[in-house]
């Protein structure tokens, strides 16, 4: 049993290990926290959809160090991101910015839901209309009133 637990730990530990190495970390916990948050929004340019905070790639490490360096010099979070975006483009942002080129990306889901609601609603409404009673013709109207009249007469007697 003990061996099993040991094997499990050995197997899992590497995945639990963090990419941010101790020598990268800032002594100021507030700045370090901000650096971590920024790093989570920046894409590692050589990995498939991984943020630089969790990547072991060399370029990711360089970018983490750069983020921290900028923070220490007094940049705001937005300034740090702008600095890196100026060099690597929108691609480096894991969350695409809202701008004319990305309107389709941001608004297409909402648009599709609206289209779905309207089309679905339209179909339901038209079906309901079909089920509604139409006016009876003059002949049928006469027949019905005749029957009703006879029934009334029957009740009275």
């Amino acid at each position: 049993m003990r061996q099993l637990i040991f094997a499990f730990c050995i197997g899992v530990l590497p995945f639990a290990a963090n990419a941010v190495e101790p020598d990268e970390m800032l002594t100021d916990p507030v700045l370090e926290q901000r650096a971590r948050e920024i790093s989570k929004d920046l894409r590692c340019v050589v990995c498939q959809n991984q943020d630089i905070d969790s990547s072991n790639a060399g370029v990711a490490r360089d970018l983490r160090l750069l983020v921290r360096e900028r923070l220490v010099t007094g940049d705001s979070d937005a300034e740090v991101i702008a600095y890196i975006r100026a060099r690597y483009g929108d691609y480096v942002l894991l969350k695409p910015p809202l701008e004319p080129a990305t309107y389709a990306l941001w608004f297409a889901p909402i648009a599709f839901v609206l289209i779905g609601v309207f089309v679905g609603g339209g179909v339901l409404m038209s079906r309901r209309k079909q089920e509604a009673f139409e006016d009876l013709g003059a002949e049928d109207e006469n027949t019905v009133s005749e029957i009703l009249r006879q029934n009334e007469a029957g009740d009275a007697s």
Binding site: V45, V46, G58, V59, D62, L63, L66, R87, Y88, G89
Partner: peptide, 13 residues
């Protein structure tokens, strides 16, 4: 040596 100029060029590798 530091790779900093590489970042300036937007280098990925």
């Amino acid at each position: 040596l530091s790779g900093r100029t590489g970042i300036e060029w937007g280098l990925s590798g």
